[in-house]
Design a protein around this nucleic acid. Structure first.
Lengths: 249, 249
DNA sequence: CGCGAGCTTGATGCCGATCAATGCATGTGG
DNA sequence: CCACATGCATTGATCGGCATCAAGCTCGCG
Protein backbone atom coordinates (compact mmCIF):
# COMPACT_ATOMS: atom_id res chain seq x y z
CA UNK A 1 0.00 0.00 0.00
CA UNK A 2 1.09 3.51 -0.73
CA UNK A 3 1.12 6.52 1.57
CA UNK A 4 -2.44 7.01 2.70
CA UNK A 5 -2.55 10.75 2.47
CA UNK A 6 -3.72 13.25 -0.10
CA UNK A 7 -3.71 12.01 -3.67
CA UNK A 8 -0.79 13.86 -5.21
CA UNK A 9 0.99 13.36 -8.48
CA UNK A 10 3.67 10.72 -8.54
CA UNK A 11 7.05 12.16 -9.50
CA UNK A 12 7.33 11.86 -13.25
CA UNK A 13 10.26 9.82 -14.48
CA UNK A 14 11.26 10.09 -18.08
CA UNK A 15 13.71 7.23 -18.18
CA UNK A 16 12.13 3.88 -19.04
CA UNK A 17 12.19 1.97 -15.83
CA UNK A 18 12.21 -1.71 -15.30
CA UNK A 19 8.98 -2.98 -13.89
CA UNK A 20 7.30 -6.28 -14.24
CA UNK A 21 3.73 -7.30 -13.53
CA UNK A 22 5.11 -9.74 -10.99
CA UNK A 23 6.61 -6.94 -8.93
CA UNK A 24 4.01 -4.29 -9.69
CA UNK A 25 2.12 -2.98 -6.72
CA UNK A 26 -0.97 -2.67 -8.88
CA UNK A 27 -1.19 -6.31 -9.78
CA UNK A 28 -4.13 -6.90 -7.47
CA UNK A 29 -6.12 -4.27 -9.34
CA UNK A 30 -4.95 -4.96 -12.83
CA UNK A 31 -4.93 -7.72 -15.39
CA UNK A 32 -2.78 -10.20 -13.40
CA UNK A 33 -5.30 -10.42 -10.59
CA UNK A 34 -5.94 -14.01 -9.60
CA UNK A 35 -3.11 -15.49 -11.65
CA UNK A 36 -0.38 -17.73 -10.33
CA UNK A 37 3.11 -16.33 -10.12
CA UNK A 38 4.40 -18.43 -12.97
CA UNK A 39 1.54 -17.26 -15.15
CA UNK A 40 2.31 -13.67 -14.26
CA UNK A 41 5.86 -14.22 -15.40
CA UNK A 42 4.56 -15.16 -18.83
CA UNK A 43 2.55 -11.97 -18.81
CA UNK A 44 5.72 -10.08 -18.04
CA UNK A 45 7.37 -11.24 -21.21
CA UNK A 46 4.39 -10.02 -23.18
CA UNK A 47 4.07 -6.63 -21.52
CA UNK A 48 7.54 -5.64 -22.54
CA UNK A 49 7.10 -1.98 -23.37
CA UNK A 50 5.89 0.99 -21.47
CA UNK A 51 5.00 4.40 -22.65
CA UNK A 52 5.09 7.81 -21.05
CA UNK A 53 2.36 10.26 -21.87
CA UNK A 54 2.79 13.85 -20.83
CA UNK A 55 -0.09 15.81 -19.41
CA UNK A 56 -2.36 16.96 -22.23
CA UNK A 57 -1.05 14.44 -24.74
CA UNK A 58 -3.21 11.71 -26.14
CA UNK A 59 -2.44 8.04 -25.78
CA UNK A 60 -4.62 7.23 -28.77
CA UNK A 61 -7.12 8.97 -30.99
CA UNK A 62 -10.47 7.82 -32.28
CA UNK A 63 -9.97 6.30 -35.70
CA UNK A 64 -6.44 5.04 -35.09
CA UNK A 65 -5.76 1.37 -35.67
CA UNK A 66 -6.22 -0.73 -32.58
CA UNK A 67 -3.23 -2.83 -31.61
CA UNK A 68 -2.90 -2.89 -27.89
CA UNK A 69 -4.63 -2.35 -24.64
CA UNK A 70 -2.98 -0.06 -22.13
CA UNK A 71 -2.84 -0.46 -18.38
CA UNK A 72 -2.42 2.76 -16.47
CA UNK A 73 0.71 2.39 -14.41
CA UNK A 74 0.80 5.89 -13.03
CA UNK A 75 -1.14 9.02 -13.72
CA UNK A 76 -4.65 9.82 -14.79
CA UNK A 77 -6.57 9.76 -18.06
CA UNK A 78 -9.87 10.72 -19.55
CA UNK A 79 -11.54 9.08 -22.52
CA UNK A 80 -13.92 10.99 -24.74
CA UNK A 81 -16.03 10.26 -27.76
CA UNK A 82 -17.26 12.88 -30.17
CA UNK A 83 -20.11 12.94 -32.64
CA UNK A 84 -19.81 14.18 -36.20
CA UNK A 85 -21.06 17.62 -35.30
CA UNK A 86 -18.38 18.24 -32.73
CA UNK A 87 -20.34 17.49 -29.58
CA UNK A 88 -18.17 15.53 -27.29
CA UNK A 89 -18.63 13.50 -24.18
CA UNK A 90 -16.16 12.35 -21.58
CA UNK A 91 -16.93 8.66 -21.13
CA UNK A 92 -14.62 7.93 -18.23
CA UNK A 93 -11.65 8.77 -16.06
CA UNK A 94 -8.99 6.12 -15.61
CA UNK A 95 -6.46 5.79 -12.83
CA UNK A 96 -3.68 3.37 -11.92
CA UNK A 97 -4.47 -0.26 -12.63
CA UNK A 98 -7.30 0.42 -15.04
CA UNK A 99 -7.34 -0.60 -18.70
CA UNK A 100 -7.64 1.67 -21.69
CA UNK A 101 -8.53 0.73 -25.23
CA UNK A 102 -11.21 -1.96 -24.82
CA UNK A 103 -13.43 0.02 -27.18
CA UNK A 104 -11.07 -0.67 -30.06
CA UNK A 105 -11.47 -4.44 -30.19
CA UNK A 106 -14.84 -4.45 -31.90
CA UNK A 107 -13.83 -2.58 -35.04
CA UNK A 108 -10.03 -2.79 -34.91
CA UNK A 109 -10.07 0.97 -34.51
CA UNK A 110 -10.11 3.08 -31.42
CA UNK A 111 -13.47 4.80 -31.04
CA UNK A 112 -12.49 7.41 -28.51
CA UNK A 113 -9.58 9.63 -27.54
CA UNK A 114 -7.56 8.87 -24.44
CA UNK A 115 -5.92 11.96 -22.99
CA UNK A 116 -3.53 12.14 -20.05
CA UNK A 117 -4.71 14.60 -17.41
CA UNK A 118 -1.34 14.45 -15.73
CA UNK A 119 2.04 13.09 -16.68
CA UNK A 120 1.41 9.39 -16.89
CA UNK A 121 2.79 6.01 -17.78
CA UNK A 122 1.07 3.02 -19.28
CA UNK A 123 2.00 -0.59 -19.87
CA UNK A 124 1.46 -1.63 -23.46
CA UNK A 125 -0.40 -4.92 -23.86
CA UNK A 126 -0.39 -6.16 -27.46
CA UNK A 127 -3.89 -7.48 -27.84
CA UNK A 128 -3.16 -10.28 -30.22
CA UNK A 129 -0.62 -11.68 -27.79
CA UNK A 130 -3.02 -11.23 -24.93
CA UNK A 131 -5.61 -13.33 -26.73
CA UNK A 132 -2.98 -15.93 -27.42
CA UNK A 133 -1.87 -16.11 -23.83
CA UNK A 134 -5.41 -16.15 -22.54
CA UNK A 135 -6.08 -19.24 -24.65
CA UNK A 136 -3.38 -20.85 -22.61
CA UNK A 137 -4.33 -19.57 -19.17
CA UNK A 138 -7.97 -19.69 -18.25
CA UNK A 139 -7.36 -17.43 -15.26
CA UNK A 140 -6.07 -14.70 -17.51
CA UNK A 141 -8.90 -15.27 -19.94
CA UNK A 142 -11.49 -15.00 -17.22
CA UNK A 143 -9.90 -11.92 -15.71
CA UNK A 144 -10.04 -10.18 -19.08
CA UNK A 145 -13.69 -11.07 -19.45
CA UNK A 146 -14.40 -9.77 -15.98
CA UNK A 147 -12.72 -6.49 -16.71
CA UNK A 148 -14.73 -6.02 -19.89
CA UNK A 149 -17.93 -6.99 -18.15
CA UNK A 150 -17.29 -4.53 -15.33
CA UNK A 151 -16.75 -1.80 -17.86
CA UNK A 152 -20.18 -2.58 -19.28
CA UNK A 153 -21.71 -2.49 -15.81
CA UNK A 154 -19.98 0.80 -15.05
CA UNK A 155 -21.37 2.27 -18.26
CA UNK A 156 -24.85 1.18 -17.26
CA UNK A 157 -24.38 2.98 -13.98
CA UNK A 158 -23.43 6.15 -15.82
CA UNK A 159 -26.49 5.75 -18.02
CA UNK A 160 -28.63 5.59 -14.90
CA UNK A 161 -26.94 8.69 -13.58
CA UNK A 162 -27.35 10.61 -16.84
CA UNK A 163 -30.88 9.42 -17.38
CA UNK A 164 -32.45 10.06 -14.04
CA UNK A 165 -30.36 12.01 -11.56
CA UNK A 166 -30.33 15.70 -10.82
CA UNK A 167 -27.19 17.81 -10.72
CA UNK A 168 -26.44 17.39 -7.01
CA UNK A 169 -26.99 13.66 -7.17
CA UNK A 170 -24.71 13.34 -10.16
CA UNK A 171 -21.87 15.20 -8.57
CA UNK A 172 -22.30 13.30 -5.31
CA UNK A 173 -22.17 9.98 -7.16
CA UNK A 174 -19.11 11.13 -9.06
CA UNK A 175 -17.24 12.16 -5.91
CA UNK A 176 -18.12 8.97 -4.07
CA UNK A 177 -16.93 6.90 -7.00
CA UNK A 178 -13.66 8.82 -7.17
CA UNK A 179 -12.91 8.64 -3.46
CA UNK A 180 -13.71 4.97 -3.38
CA UNK A 181 -11.32 4.20 -6.19
CA UNK A 182 -8.63 6.34 -4.62
CA UNK A 183 -9.11 4.58 -1.32
CA UNK A 184 -8.68 1.21 -3.00
CA UNK A 185 -5.30 2.52 -4.11
CA UNK A 186 -4.26 3.49 -0.64
CA UNK A 187 -5.15 7.17 -0.72
CA UNK A 188 -7.33 9.07 1.66
CA UNK A 189 -11.07 8.82 1.12
CA UNK A 190 -11.68 12.34 2.35
CA UNK A 191 -8.97 14.41 0.75
CA UNK A 192 -8.42 14.53 -2.97
CA UNK A 193 -7.14 16.66 -5.78
CA UNK A 194 -9.20 16.70 -8.92
CA UNK A 195 -7.16 16.05 -12.00
CA UNK A 196 -9.82 17.33 -14.37
CA UNK A 197 -11.46 20.69 -15.04
CA UNK A 198 -15.03 21.61 -14.18
CA UNK A 199 -15.80 21.37 -17.86
CA UNK A 200 -14.54 17.78 -18.04
CA UNK A 201 -16.53 16.84 -14.97
CA UNK A 202 -19.54 18.49 -16.54
CA UNK A 203 -19.09 16.64 -19.78
CA UNK A 204 -18.90 13.33 -17.95
CA UNK A 205 -21.98 14.14 -15.87
CA UNK A 206 -24.06 15.74 -18.62
CA UNK A 207 -23.89 19.19 -17.02
CA UNK A 208 -22.42 22.55 -17.94
CA UNK A 209 -19.32 23.70 -16.13
CA UNK A 210 -21.24 26.49 -14.40
CA UNK A 211 -23.62 23.99 -12.90
CA UNK A 212 -20.73 21.89 -11.66
CA UNK A 213 -19.18 24.94 -10.08
CA UNK A 214 -22.43 26.03 -8.46
CA UNK A 215 -23.01 22.56 -7.11
CA UNK A 216 -19.55 22.48 -5.56
CA UNK A 217 -20.33 25.82 -3.93
CA UNK A 218 -23.64 24.51 -2.68
CA UNK A 219 -21.95 21.48 -1.13
CA UNK A 220 -19.50 23.82 0.54
CA UNK A 221 -22.27 26.03 1.94
CA UNK A 222 -23.98 22.92 3.28
CA UNK A 223 -20.81 21.81 5.01
CA UNK A 224 -20.53 18.66 2.93
CA UNK A 225 -17.30 19.61 1.21
CA UNK A 226 -14.50 22.03 1.48
CA UNK A 227 -13.61 23.21 -2.00
CA UNK A 228 -10.46 25.13 -2.88
CA UNK A 229 -10.25 25.04 -6.64
CA UNK A 230 -9.29 21.45 -7.33
CA UNK A 231 -8.55 20.51 -3.75
CA UNK A 232 -11.51 18.79 -2.21
CA UNK A 233 -12.09 17.78 1.38
CA UNK A 234 -15.04 15.52 1.97
CA UNK A 235 -16.49 16.57 5.32
CA UNK A 236 -19.70 14.56 5.24
CA UNK A 237 -19.55 11.49 3.06
CA UNK A 238 -22.87 10.35 4.51
CA UNK A 239 -24.60 13.37 3.04
CA UNK A 240 -23.23 12.53 -0.39
CA UNK A 241 -24.37 8.96 0.01
CA UNK A 242 -27.83 10.09 1.00
CA UNK A 243 -28.09 12.23 -2.11
CA UNK A 244 -27.21 9.32 -4.35
CA UNK A 245 -29.68 7.02 -2.68
CA UNK A 246 -32.29 9.72 -2.82
CA UNK A 247 -33.65 9.25 0.68
CA UNK A 248 -34.71 12.87 0.70
CA UNK A 249 -36.85 12.54 -2.41
CA UNK B 1 -33.24 -13.03 -45.59
CA UNK B 2 -36.69 -12.78 -44.17
CA UNK B 3 -39.71 -11.05 -45.62
CA UNK B 4 -38.72 -7.42 -46.03
CA UNK B 5 -41.94 -5.85 -44.88
CA UNK B 6 -43.21 -4.48 -41.62
CA UNK B 7 -41.56 -5.90 -38.54
CA UNK B 8 -44.27 -8.10 -37.07
CA UNK B 9 -44.13 -10.65 -34.29
CA UNK B 10 -42.97 -14.09 -35.25
CA UNK B 11 -45.57 -16.73 -34.47
CA UNK B 12 -44.82 -18.06 -31.03
CA UNK B 13 -44.13 -21.76 -30.81
CA UNK B 14 -44.21 -23.43 -27.46
CA UNK B 15 -42.73 -26.76 -28.44
CA UNK B 16 -38.94 -26.90 -28.22
CA UNK B 17 -37.78 -26.87 -31.78
CA UNK B 18 -34.61 -28.22 -33.17
CA UNK B 19 -32.27 -25.53 -34.33
CA UNK B 20 -28.56 -25.47 -34.52
CA UNK B 21 -26.18 -22.55 -34.88
CA UNK B 22 -25.02 -24.14 -38.12
CA UNK B 23 -28.48 -23.85 -39.65
CA UNK B 24 -29.56 -20.67 -37.89
CA UNK B 25 -30.34 -17.76 -40.13
CA UNK B 26 -28.91 -15.44 -37.50
CA UNK B 27 -25.46 -16.92 -37.48
CA UNK B 28 -24.01 -13.99 -39.40
CA UNK B 29 -25.17 -11.63 -36.67
CA UNK B 30 -24.54 -13.77 -33.66
CA UNK B 31 -21.72 -15.50 -31.88
CA UNK B 32 -20.78 -17.92 -34.70
CA UNK B 33 -19.90 -15.10 -37.06
CA UNK B 34 -16.60 -15.75 -38.76
CA UNK B 35 -16.21 -19.33 -37.60
CA UNK B 36 -15.64 -22.34 -39.81
CA UNK B 37 -18.46 -24.81 -40.22
CA UNK B 38 -16.74 -27.48 -38.16
CA UNK B 39 -16.17 -24.99 -35.38
CA UNK B 40 -19.82 -24.01 -35.48
CA UNK B 41 -20.73 -27.65 -35.04
CA UNK B 42 -18.80 -27.69 -31.80
CA UNK B 43 -20.74 -24.64 -30.75
CA UNK B 44 -23.94 -26.51 -31.51
CA UNK B 45 -23.15 -29.19 -29.02
CA UNK B 46 -22.61 -26.55 -26.37
CA UNK B 47 -25.71 -24.49 -27.08
CA UNK B 48 -27.96 -27.42 -26.40
CA UNK B 49 -30.87 -25.77 -24.68
CA UNK B 50 -33.26 -23.07 -25.60
CA UNK B 51 -35.71 -21.22 -23.51
CA UNK B 52 -39.01 -19.56 -24.25
CA UNK B 53 -39.86 -16.36 -22.45
CA UNK B 54 -43.39 -15.07 -22.64
CA UNK B 55 -44.08 -11.40 -23.09
CA UNK B 56 -43.67 -9.61 -19.79
CA UNK B 57 -41.62 -12.38 -18.18
CA UNK B 58 -38.03 -11.88 -17.17
CA UNK B 59 -35.18 -13.93 -18.51
CA UNK B 60 -33.05 -13.03 -15.51
CA UNK B 61 -33.15 -10.66 -12.59
CA UNK B 62 -30.46 -8.46 -11.11
CA UNK B 63 -28.84 -10.36 -8.26
CA UNK B 64 -29.36 -13.83 -9.69
CA UNK B 65 -26.32 -16.02 -10.11
CA UNK B 66 -24.74 -15.70 -13.51
CA UNK B 67 -24.33 -18.97 -15.40
CA UNK B 68 -24.99 -18.39 -19.03
CA UNK B 69 -25.20 -15.86 -21.76
CA UNK B 70 -28.32 -15.80 -23.87
CA UNK B 71 -28.60 -15.19 -27.57
CA UNK B 72 -31.93 -13.82 -28.71
CA UNK B 73 -33.29 -16.24 -31.25
CA UNK B 74 -36.63 -14.60 -31.75
CA UNK B 75 -38.45 -11.80 -30.04
CA UNK B 76 -37.46 -8.63 -28.30
CA UNK B 77 -36.06 -7.74 -24.88
CA UNK B 78 -35.23 -4.79 -22.72
CA UNK B 79 -32.60 -4.68 -20.01
CA UNK B 80 -32.90 -2.35 -17.07
CA UNK B 81 -30.87 -1.49 -14.01
CA UNK B 82 -32.29 0.06 -10.89
CA UNK B 83 -30.72 2.01 -8.07
CA UNK B 84 -31.41 1.37 -4.42
CA UNK B 85 -34.04 4.07 -4.25
CA UNK B 86 -36.15 2.57 -6.98
CA UNK B 87 -35.11 4.75 -9.87
CA UNK B 88 -34.67 2.60 -12.87
CA UNK B 89 -33.15 2.95 -16.27
CA UNK B 90 -33.60 0.94 -19.43
CA UNK B 91 -30.06 0.25 -20.62
CA UNK B 92 -30.87 -1.38 -23.92
CA UNK B 93 -33.26 -3.15 -26.25
CA UNK B 94 -32.14 -6.46 -27.73
CA UNK B 95 -33.38 -8.17 -30.85
CA UNK B 96 -32.60 -11.35 -32.73
CA UNK B 97 -28.93 -12.29 -32.81
CA UNK B 98 -27.92 -10.09 -29.90
CA UNK B 99 -26.46 -11.33 -26.63
CA UNK B 100 -27.87 -10.87 -23.17
CA UNK B 101 -26.11 -11.31 -19.86
CA UNK B 102 -22.63 -9.91 -20.50
CA UNK B 103 -23.04 -7.73 -17.43
CA UNK B 104 -23.02 -10.79 -15.19
CA UNK B 105 -19.49 -11.96 -15.89
CA UNK B 106 -17.75 -9.40 -13.74
CA UNK B 107 -19.37 -10.29 -10.44
CA UNK B 108 -20.88 -13.72 -11.18
CA UNK B 109 -24.24 -12.08 -10.68
CA UNK B 110 -26.56 -10.47 -13.12
CA UNK B 111 -26.67 -6.73 -12.56
CA UNK B 112 -29.78 -5.93 -14.53
CA UNK B 113 -33.18 -7.39 -15.36
CA UNK B 114 -33.86 -8.75 -18.83
CA UNK B 115 -37.55 -8.62 -19.72
CA UNK B 116 -39.21 -9.97 -22.85
CA UNK B 117 -41.26 -7.30 -24.62
CA UNK B 118 -42.88 -9.94 -26.77
CA UNK B 119 -43.02 -13.72 -26.71
CA UNK B 120 -39.41 -14.67 -27.29
CA UNK B 121 -36.91 -17.45 -27.47
CA UNK B 122 -33.28 -17.46 -26.48
CA UNK B 123 -30.39 -19.88 -26.92
CA UNK B 124 -28.68 -20.67 -23.64
CA UNK B 125 -24.90 -20.44 -23.76
CA UNK B 126 -23.26 -21.80 -20.61
CA UNK B 127 -20.50 -19.31 -20.03
CA UNK B 128 -17.97 -21.66 -18.54
CA UNK B 129 -18.22 -23.88 -21.57
CA UNK B 130 -18.00 -20.88 -23.84
CA UNK B 131 -14.73 -19.87 -22.23
CA UNK B 132 -13.48 -23.40 -22.59
CA UNK B 133 -14.36 -23.59 -26.24
CA UNK B 134 -12.96 -20.17 -26.95
CA UNK B 135 -9.62 -21.31 -25.57
CA UNK B 136 -9.69 -23.87 -28.32
CA UNK B 137 -10.92 -21.67 -31.17
CA UNK B 138 -9.36 -18.29 -31.52
CA UNK B 139 -12.08 -17.21 -33.95
CA UNK B 140 -14.72 -17.79 -31.33
CA UNK B 141 -12.59 -16.10 -28.71
CA UNK B 142 -12.12 -13.05 -30.87
CA UNK B 143 -15.77 -12.86 -31.80
CA UNK B 144 -16.74 -12.85 -28.13
CA UNK B 145 -14.27 -10.08 -27.44
CA UNK B 146 -15.63 -8.10 -30.35
CA UNK B 147 -19.17 -8.44 -29.12
CA UNK B 148 -18.23 -7.24 -25.66
CA UNK B 149 -16.21 -4.37 -27.07
CA UNK B 150 -19.08 -3.28 -29.27
CA UNK B 151 -21.37 -3.28 -26.29
CA UNK B 152 -18.96 -0.90 -24.58
CA UNK B 153 -18.90 1.32 -27.65
CA UNK B 154 -22.68 1.28 -27.87
CA UNK B 155 -22.90 2.33 -24.23
CA UNK B 156 -20.54 5.21 -24.91
CA UNK B 157 -22.86 6.30 -27.70
CA UNK B 158 -25.79 6.28 -25.33
CA UNK B 159 -23.78 8.30 -22.85
CA UNK B 160 -23.16 10.89 -25.56
CA UNK B 161 -26.86 10.94 -26.32
CA UNK B 162 -27.89 11.28 -22.67
CA UNK B 163 -25.20 13.80 -21.90
CA UNK B 164 -25.59 16.25 -24.71
CA UNK B 165 -28.61 15.77 -26.96
CA UNK B 166 -32.01 17.39 -26.79
CA UNK B 167 -35.27 15.48 -26.86
CA UNK B 168 -35.80 15.54 -30.61
CA UNK B 169 -32.24 14.51 -31.28
CA UNK B 170 -32.48 11.64 -28.83
CA UNK B 171 -35.63 10.25 -30.35
CA UNK B 172 -34.24 10.66 -33.85
CA UNK B 173 -31.08 8.79 -32.91
CA UNK B 174 -33.15 6.08 -31.28
CA UNK B 175 -35.34 5.59 -34.32
CA UNK B 176 -32.42 5.54 -36.73
CA UNK B 177 -30.66 2.96 -34.60
CA UNK B 178 -33.77 0.78 -34.47
CA UNK B 179 -34.50 0.93 -38.18
CA UNK B 180 -30.90 0.21 -39.02
CA UNK B 181 -30.85 -2.90 -36.87
CA UNK B 182 -34.18 -4.04 -38.28
CA UNK B 183 -32.91 -3.52 -41.78
CA UNK B 184 -29.86 -5.66 -41.05
CA UNK B 185 -32.34 -8.39 -40.17
CA UNK B 186 -34.20 -8.09 -43.44
CA UNK B 187 -37.03 -5.86 -42.33
CA UNK B 188 -38.13 -2.60 -43.84
CA UNK B 189 -36.18 0.48 -42.82
CA UNK B 190 -39.23 2.71 -43.06
CA UNK B 191 -42.01 0.77 -41.44
CA UNK B 192 -41.78 -0.58 -37.93
CA UNK B 193 -43.79 -1.54 -34.92
CA UNK B 194 -42.44 -0.47 -31.58
CA UNK B 195 -42.30 -3.27 -29.10
CA UNK B 196 -41.89 -0.96 -26.12
CA UNK B 197 -44.05 1.64 -24.42
CA UNK B 198 -43.44 5.37 -24.47
CA UNK B 199 -42.34 5.07 -20.90
CA UNK B 200 -39.67 2.51 -21.77
CA UNK B 201 -38.43 4.63 -24.63
CA UNK B 202 -38.35 7.57 -22.27
CA UNK B 203 -36.40 5.66 -19.68
CA UNK B 204 -33.83 4.63 -22.26
CA UNK B 205 -33.51 8.17 -23.58
CA UNK B 206 -33.61 9.98 -20.25
CA UNK B 207 -36.99 11.58 -20.98
CA UNK B 208 -40.48 11.38 -19.52
CA UNK B 209 -43.13 9.52 -21.46
CA UNK B 210 -45.05 12.73 -22.15
CA UNK B 211 -42.00 14.22 -23.79
CA UNK B 212 -41.58 11.13 -25.94
CA UNK B 213 -45.22 11.34 -26.98
CA UNK B 214 -45.01 15.05 -27.76
CA UNK B 215 -41.88 14.53 -29.80
CA UNK B 216 -43.55 11.80 -31.83
CA UNK B 217 -46.42 14.21 -32.47
CA UNK B 218 -44.00 16.93 -33.48
CA UNK B 219 -42.29 14.60 -35.95
CA UNK B 220 -45.69 13.76 -37.37
CA UNK B 221 -46.64 17.43 -37.77
CA UNK B 222 -43.34 18.03 -39.53
CA UNK B 223 -44.01 15.20 -41.95
CA UNK B 224 -41.02 13.21 -40.74
CA UNK B 225 -43.02 10.30 -39.36
CA UNK B 226 -46.44 8.85 -39.46
CA UNK B 227 -47.34 7.68 -35.97
CA UNK B 228 -50.27 5.45 -35.15
CA UNK B 229 -49.72 4.30 -31.60
CA UNK B 230 -46.85 1.89 -31.94
CA UNK B 231 -46.88 1.70 -35.72
CA UNK B 232 -44.31 4.04 -37.16
CA UNK B 233 -43.70 5.00 -40.75
CA UNK B 234 -40.50 6.86 -41.41
CA UNK B 235 -41.31 9.37 -44.14
CA UNK B 236 -38.10 11.40 -44.07
CA UNK B 237 -35.10 9.52 -42.73
CA UNK B 238 -32.88 12.35 -43.90
CA UNK B 239 -34.56 14.74 -41.51
CA UNK B 240 -33.89 12.37 -38.63
CA UNK B 241 -30.29 12.05 -39.69
CA UNK B 242 -29.93 15.80 -39.84
CA UNK B 243 -31.24 16.12 -36.31
CA UNK B 244 -28.72 13.64 -34.99
CA UNK B 245 -25.84 15.33 -36.75
CA UNK B 246 -27.04 18.68 -35.53
CA UNK B 247 -26.58 20.59 -38.77
CA UNK B 248 -29.20 23.06 -37.59
CA UNK B 249 -27.31 23.94 -34.43
C1' DC C 1 3.87 42.08 -13.32
C1' DG C 2 0.45 41.02 -16.39
C1' DC C 3 -1.55 37.53 -19.20
C1' DG C 4 -4.65 33.70 -19.75
C1' DA C 5 -6.87 29.47 -18.48
C1' DG C 6 -9.96 28.05 -15.43
C1' DC C 7 -13.31 29.08 -11.75
C1' DT C 8 -17.09 31.60 -9.48
C1' DT C 9 -21.31 34.10 -9.29
C1' DG C 10 -25.39 36.63 -10.97
C1' DA C 11 -29.49 37.46 -14.16
C1' DT C 12 -32.52 35.61 -17.38
C1' DG C 13 -34.83 32.29 -20.35
C1' DC C 14 -36.04 27.88 -22.18
C1' DC C 15 -36.64 22.92 -22.41
C1' DG C 16 -38.53 19.31 -20.50
C1' DA C 17 -40.82 17.74 -15.97
C1' DT C 18 -44.92 17.69 -13.62
C1' DC C 19 -49.79 17.64 -12.86
C1' DA C 20 -54.11 16.75 -14.85
C1' DA C 21 -57.68 15.54 -18.05
C1' DT C 22 -59.17 13.12 -22.08
C1' DG C 23 -58.86 9.73 -25.76
C1' DC C 24 -58.12 5.24 -27.67
C1' DA C 25 -57.46 0.27 -27.97
C1' DT C 26 -57.83 -4.31 -25.95
C1' DG C 27 -59.93 -7.63 -23.28
C1' DT C 28 -63.28 -9.51 -19.91
C1' DG C 29 -67.50 -10.75 -17.89
C1' DG C 30 -72.46 -10.11 -17.80
C1' DC D 1 -72.77 -7.90 -28.18
C1' DC D 2 -72.45 -4.29 -25.12
C1' DA D 3 -70.61 -2.19 -20.68
C1' DC D 4 -66.95 -1.48 -18.27
C1' DA D 5 -62.24 -1.81 -16.67
C1' DT D 6 -57.52 -1.29 -17.68
C1' DG D 7 -53.32 0.06 -19.70
C1' DC D 8 -51.27 3.13 -22.77
C1' DA D 9 -51.09 7.44 -25.43
C1' DT D 10 -52.15 12.18 -26.36
C1' DT D 11 -52.60 16.94 -25.23
C1' DG D 12 -52.81 21.13 -22.37
C1' DA D 13 -51.24 24.29 -18.52
C1' DT D 14 -47.88 25.40 -15.39
C1' DC D 15 -43.50 25.05 -13.02
C1' DG D 16 -38.65 24.41 -12.04
C1' DG D 17 -33.87 23.08 -12.87
C1' DC D 18 -30.38 23.78 -15.61
C1' DA D 19 -28.44 26.25 -19.73
C1' DT D 20 -27.06 30.42 -21.38
C1' DC D 21 -25.07 34.88 -21.36
C1' DA D 22 -22.20 37.95 -18.95
C1' DA D 23 -19.17 39.84 -15.53
C1' DG D 24 -15.48 39.44 -12.31
C1' DC D 25 -12.15 36.58 -9.77
C1' DT D 26 -7.98 33.43 -8.72
C1' DC D 27 -3.93 31.39 -9.50
C1' DG D 28 -0.02 29.71 -12.01
C1' DC D 29 3.38 31.01 -15.22
C1' DG D 30 6.25 33.29 -18.70
Amino acid sequence: MQHANTHTAAPFKLEPFKVACSSCNLRELCLPFGMSSEQVEKLDSMVATRRSVARGDTLFHAGEAFQSLFAVRAGFFKTCVSSEDGRDQVTGFQMAGELLGLDGIGTDQHTCDAVALEDSQVCVIPFHQLEELSREFSDLQHQLHKIMSREIVRDHGVMLLLGSMRAEERLAAFLLNLTQRLQTRGFSASSLILRMTREEIGSYLGLKLETVSRTFSKFQEDGVLEVKQRQIQVLDAGALQKLVNGSAC
